[in-house]
Amino acid sequence: MVGEGILKGLAETARNFFGSYVSKERLTTVQYPEQRLPRIEAARSFPFLVYDGSDWQQGMRCVGCQICEKECPPKCILIEKSKDKKPDAVGKQQFYPAVFDIDISVCMSCQICVEVCPFDAIKMDVDVDLPTDNRFAGLLLDKQQLAKSNEYYHGIHPTEAAAVDAALAAERAKAQAKKPAAATPPAAPPSAAPVPEAQPVGGESK
């Protein structure tokens, strides 16, 4: 007979219809703004700037080298390098970005800026709560809006952040070990001179 399969199908949809009122497990929809799924570690939305310590201006890892600005395919990053230097989180004298803007209406979340950054200063966020009522100013994030603490970074990407921290610590330890060796022969003031050797700031000289 024609219609046997149709009746089976109708029974199935009827079971779904009534079942969805009886058992809550059937309804897998997450009511988004009120309920949220746990953040996914391997996700990415838009870049942010990592800072160490508690003060975002002082602890910012970015030294304004502008590599990411040059590499960014859609050109959504604007950096103006500072004229002066100021101490970073570990007390070294560094340049810093006077202006660091990312237009996330242009950004395509490609992560190239993260890959080229020699200082682990720029990382990908997982936050998606970015709607604003102004599509121009509201989506142009400045330095302060972009700055997020290292703890936040650990919160969203624990594995990756631990690896970055370990690498940074290793580099610092190496620099610490080299510093006495490099500092003793010329007996020069060790404050500014070892910086080029300790960390590859090659971005500017290239």
Binding site: T13, F17, S20, L27, T29, Q31
Partner: peptide, 10 residues
């Protein structure tokens, strides 16, 4: 509403 419930949606 009905279609949603048949597909286990709200």
């Amino acid at each position: 509403k009905g279609l949603g419930r048949m597909q286990n949606r709200y």
